[in-house]
Simulated assay, not measured.
Amino acid sequence: MSEIIETTVYQLAELDEPAKEAARAWYREGGFDYDWYDGVYADFEEICAILGIALRTRPVRLMGGGSRAAPCIYFSGFWSQGDGACFEGHYAYARQASANIRDYAPKDAVLHQIADALQAAQRSNFYQLRAEVRHHGRYYHEYCMEIAVGRDSATYQAVTGGAEDIVIEALRDLARWLYRQLEAEYEHLSSDESVDAVICANAYTFTGAGQRFG
């Protein structure tokens, strides 16, 4: 025989603190099943273009059919040893990269240092350096990038002045920088303030113990 059971439900603001924590934990467990990192990726693509890095792309299927080209950027995080970020692409000299990155990100000293290092390496090699960056392995961090540095010289001159190591380290520094941006974005979106705002905006309701209802 069926019966009707009445349950009192609450908005987040009506819960006590332990129940609020339970409600937040519910959201954090399943609330990030979307591309929350798209803004970070878009910023990274702009930075790569300024520095002279053409990111490789891969086809990604769309829900309605068809596909779109997505940049080859990968990451894992943010709690385990070995977490990090990496990318695939082709690097070549970009004019005014040091000045342009300062215009784009005037307060980001790490990006300035990366641009300056690449510029110095190019200068000592008559701006002929290039690099291919490929991901390898099953992890995603800066040391999962295979970076092959060469020189477009009509007379087959070798890379000089330690430039190969400089370019490799600069590109790995860029992957480290990307990971820090992703981590900061995740921490912001998963903070109590941000989670509370999303829960309230969607008018989610909970039991007195903070369990999602409905």
Rank of each mutant, 00 (worst) to 15 (best):
8 T>D: 13
119 Q>G: 04
86 C>D: 09
189 L>P: 04
20 K>G: 00
63 M>I: 10
170 A>I: 04
64 G>D: 11
148 A>S: 12
197 A>S: 13
111 L>T: 05
181 Q>H: 14
102 R>S: 08
154 A>M: 09
12 L>D: 00
165 D>V: 08
34 Y>C: 02
23 A>F: 04
206 F>S: 02
207 T>Q: 07
124 S>Q: 14
51 L>H: 00
38 D>Y: 11
9 V>D: 04
147 I>V: 09
196 D>H: 09
20 K>W: 06
135 H>E: 10
190 S>P: 05
94 A>F: 01
132 E>A: 11
60 V>E: 12
37 Y>F: 15
200 C>G: 05
166 I>Q: 12
33 D>V: 05
176 R>N: 12
48 C>E: 01
167 V>K: 00
140 Y>K: 11
143 Y>R: 14
14 E>F: 06
12 L>I: 12
34 Y>P: 01
92 A>T: 12
69 A>I: 03
23 A>T: 04
25 A>N: 04
181 Q>F: 08
170 A>Q: 02
72 C>V: 12
75 F>W: 14
120 A>K: 14
184 A>C: 09
87 F>N: 01
139 Y>P: 00
90 H>F: 15
46 E>N: 12
136 H>Y: 15
119 Q>H: 09
173 D>K: 10
113 Q>R: 14
204 Y>E: 08
152 D>R: 13
120 A>S: 14
116 D>S: 14
74 Y>R: 11
39 G>Q: 13
187 E>R: 15
31 G>H: 01
59 P>H: 05
114 I>L: 06
91 Y>H: 03
125 N>H: 06
69 A>E: 15
141 H>F: 03
13 A>P: 03
60 V>T: 12
23 A>I: 09
66 G>F: 07
82 G>T: 05
9 V>M: 08
94 A>K: 01
99 A>T: 12
75 F>G: 03
7 T>L: 13
208 G>N: 07
56 R>Q: 13
179 Y>E: 06
174 L>R: 04
152 D>I: 07
173 D>C: 08
61 R>A: 15
121 A>P: 01
125 N>E: 08
172 R>S: 04
29 E>R: 13
46 E>K: 15
109 A>H: 13
27 Y>Q: 05
161 G>H: 15
91 Y>K: 02
173 D>S: 11
42 A>I: 06
12 L>H: 03
15 L>T: 09
110 V>M: 13
188 H>I: 05
31 G>A: 04
20 K>H: 04
144 C>P: 01
46 E>C: 06
107 K>W: 08
126 F>C: 07
190 S>K: 07
155 T>W: 10
20 K>D: 01
169 E>F: 06
185 E>Y: 08
148 A>V: 15
78 F>R: 03
124 S>M: 11
150 G>F: 14
71 P>N: 06
131 A>P: 00
129 L>I: 09
183 E>A: 14
28 R>L: 10
126 F>W: 12
174 L>F: 14
88 E>C: 03
24 R>P: 00
63 M>V: 10
57 T>Q: 11
88 E>S: 10
171 L>K: 03
26 W>R: 04
78 F>D: 01
187 E>P: 03
41 Y>M: 07
121 A>Q: 02
50 I>E: 00
65 G>S: 09
177 W>E: 10
15 L>Q: 04
15 L>I: 11
2 S>C: 05
186 Y>V: 06
147 I>T: 05
118 L>I: 09
206 F>W: 05
83 D>I: 03
4 I>P: 02
120 A>V: 13
203 A>D: 11
144 C>E: 12
16 D>L: 06
